[in-house]
């Protein structure tokens, strides 16, 4: 099948199978996404992050944990020798550490999204759909979580669970679901009283079926957008925990921990703390741009 006919097959207004209709729908979304160049930059950054994380072993020229010669290779500035971004106080190649650190960053982002999104969706749609005291109880619990600043609450959880990257992930997930629950509840409230939900109920569909089959898919796009926009915040929180010594533990090449280690030498060896900071900045920006672009194409309310 040539490229032209594939384009036509996807845009056909008479899809012959459910798969073709789905793919066509996705293709149309992609076409409108593609026109937004900032969003494409964001997508490019996120894809690059994933690729770097996948092929970290191939890309990184040095070991991220074992340093070089402590007498000759400490604090080499960027672009000296084979060290693209220089070396740190333990003669480790900063570029290699950042490349390996992308794995940790991605791990945090993906796991938090996988843990927090379903919790938020479940709580929000249940509260919104059933209303009454279910709504009151669930939303007050949500409010309790929202009442604390995120990093402070995460700090408290990590302090209780003990430092480490896994506990940091759990703590961030526990602190990041409430906004999704709020959002899902708001969406559910607008959907709950629409005729097609009444129709489903009249057909005898159970509450679980309505929640899972009708309400959740409609909440999903706005929650996905919100999660994508939150990714930057998640990365920053993870970095913040790392910076405070409660996230990833040395010698793990976590970006926040790297900044913390480098800040002692900020005046004389600025690159040690700056390079991981730049990495955090670029990746956060990428997720924000991607989220903005997704909102433009996925959110039916923002259209037109």
């Amino acid at each position: 099948m040539s490229a032209m006919t594939r384009h036509e097959w996807l845009l056909s207004d008479r899809p012959t199978s459910r798969r073709q209709a789905r793919l066509g729908q996705a293709y149309r979304t992609w076409l409108s996404f593609r026109t937004n160049w900032l969003a494409m930059v964001g997508l490019g950054i996120v894809v690059a992050l994933v690729l770097v994380a996948l092929f970290a072993n191939v890309i990184a020229p040095y070991d991220p944990v074992l340093g070089g010669d402590l007498r000759t290779e400490r604090f080499l500035p960027p672009l000296t020798g084979n060290h693209l971004l220089g070396t740190d106080d333990l003669s480790r190649d900063i570029f290699s550490r950042i490349v390996h650190g992308s794995r940790l960053t991605l791990l945090v982002v993906v796991l938090v999204a996988v843990i927090a999104t379903p919790i938020g969706l479940l709580v929000g749609t249940t509260a919104g759909y059933f209303g009454g005291w279910v709504d009151t109880v669930l939303m007050r619990i949500t409010d309790i979580f929202l009442a604390f600043p995120r990093l402070i609450l995460a700090l408290a959880f990590v302090a209780a669970l003990g430092p480490g990257i896994e506990n940091a992930i759990i703590a961030i997930a526990i602190t990041s679901w409430p906004p999704y629950a709020r959002l899902a509840r708001a969406e559910t409230l607008t959907i709950r009283d629409s005729d097609f939900i009444s129709a489903a109920r009249l057909q005898g569909a159970s509450s679980a079926r309505i929640l899972w089959g009708h309400v959740t898919p409609l909440c999903l796009s706005s929650v996905i957008i919100r999660v994508t926009l939150d990714m930057a915040g998640i990365i920053l929180t993870a970095a913040g925990l790392g910076f405070l010594g409660l996230g990833a533990q040395p010698p793990q090449p976590e970006w926040g921990a790297m900044i913390a280690a480098g800040r002692r030498f900020l005046i004389d060896q600025w690159w040690v703390a700056t390079m991981p900071g730049v990495a955090i900045f670029i990746v956060s920006l990428g997720f924000n741009l991607l989220g903005d672009g997704l909102r433009d194409v996925l959110d039916p309310k923002a259209r037109k």
Binding site: S194, D195, F196, S198, A199, A200, H214, L218
Partner: peptide, 10 residues
């Protein structure tokens, strides 16, 4: 239902 579009899951 009265509003045909509102009664169908989009």
């Amino acid at each position: 239902f009265q509003d045909p579009l509102a009664s169908l899951d989009p």
